[in-house]
């Protein structure tokens, strides 16, 4: 009996913890989106007001942003310095390397990868207008995630506990 009881408690605790984690997922997604918004805003101002080379811009951004975007910028900058391949491929590779460590979804991935194609262009204004489109996408997505998270947070917490109890009752 004690064995069954402790087993049930473990199942409920794990289920509750998983529910808590799921309820925080939207928050982590929001943090990542804000981090990338910061990256694109700094990039826009750097492109607009300075004539520094791309690797230097990436290194500057790496110092001003959080862990994930900082790592991406550092990787991209070192790739530009060492391999000197196209900026498109370098950004794509740097983004895909860090993508699995983020909470971004496939739609975000599609938009951010589309940014790498813009880097091919020599037209400064075109690059800036495209970055502004991505920033407006991020702002819309932020709002969408905020609305969704309010609803989901309570649901996942309740589902965690109830799911755990249900599993315990079925298996006991």
């Amino acid at each position: 009996m004690l064995f069954k009881l402790s087993g049930s408690l473990i199942v409920i605790a794990i289920s509750f913890a998983y529910g808590l984690f799921c309820s925080k997922k939207d928050k982590f997604h929001l943090e990542d989106l804000r981090e990338f918004k910061k990256f694109f805003l700094i990039l826009t101002s750097e492109i607009t007001y300075s004539n520094t080379p791309l690797y230097q811009i990436f290194l500057d951004i790496a110092e001003k942003t959080g862990d994930i975007t900082s790592l991406m910028c550092k990787n991209a900058a070192y790739e530009i310095i060492n391999n000197q391949t196209s900026a498109e491929l370098i950004f794509k590779k740097a983004f895909l390397d860090i993508f699995n460590f983020t909470y971004l979804d496939s739609e975000d991935k599609k938009y951010f990868l589309s940014f790498s194609k813009i880097l091919k262009s020599d037209d400064k204004n075109q690059i800036i207008s495209n970055i502004k489109t991505i920033i407006s996408y991020i702002e819309n997505k932020e709002q969408e995630v905020i609305n969704k998270s309010l609803n989901n947070m309570k649901m996942y917490k309740s589902l965690g506990v109830l799911g755990g109890l249900l599993i315990a009752v079925i298996l006991i």
């Binding site: 609803n151 989901n152 309570k154 649901m155 309740s158 589902l159 109830l162 799911g163 109890l165 249900l166 009752v169 079925i170 006991i172």
Partner: peptide, 19 residues
Amino acid sequence: RIAAVGILVAVLNQVLIRA
């Protein structure tokens, strides 16, 4: 056991419908 499953499923149902 059936009663417990019934109660839990009913509550789960309500939580999911409200979401």
